[in-house]
């Protein structure tokens, strides 16, 4: 290997400095790209987004938030459900016909795929969102602290 020392700087240190500059530039570019993506890369809108900038009627979008406690109602046909998705800032009524995932319950997170029809979100598909809490069944209900975290997560 060529170990000639040029101008008092060892080649090793020159390489280290060059590489560090390249790394800083790379990380900067990555962060800029991620920042620019921040809206496009989101998997769903929260109710506050839809309230602020109402989407086109009939355009396919995803809506995510918490299923409001006490809002879940089954219609007479037995397969159509109505519920309200909220994020603490806005509330959107949702209608869905079909089988719901196991984790779909009042007070937990949901992502609905569908479109706005009038003021109602008509969902073609429901995905249940799990929160970051893992609690054994014996402990029963969530603690107040965890419940607060769940709400904070969707905001």
């Amino acid at each position: 290997m060529n170990s000639k020392v040029t101008g008092g700087i060892k080649p090793k240190h020159q390489r280290l400095v060059l590489l560090l500059i390249a790394l800083v530039a790379l990380i900067g570019a990555g962060l800029l790209a991620a920042y620019a993506l921040s809206n496009q890369a989101s998997y769903f809108y929260v109710p506050a987004d839809l309230a602020k900038a109402p989407p086109e009627q009939g355009r396919a979008i995803r809506l995510g938030g918490m299923v409001e406690k006490g809002s879940l109602k089954t219609r007479a046909d037995g397969v159509t459900i109505d519920f309200i998705v909220g994020d603490g800032k806005a509330r959107i009524p949702v209608r869905y016909t079909g089988i719901t995932p196991d984790l779909f319950v009042e007070g937990s997170g949901v992502v609905a795929e569908g479109r706005m029809e009038g003021n109602t979100f008509v969902a073609d598909n429901l995905l249940a969102k799990h929160d970051e809490n893992y609690v054994p069944r014996q402990m029963g209900e969530m603690t107040a602290e965890q419940a607060k975290q769940v709400v904070a997560e969707t905001q």
Partner: peptide, 17 residues
């Protein structure tokens, strides 16, 4: 950074959900 179906981290510096 982004809304995702995957839940946020359960284990963050010194805290675990």
């Amino acid at each position: 950074w982004w809304n995702s179906l995957h839940q946020p981290p359960s284990i963050t510096a010194g805290k675990s959900a």
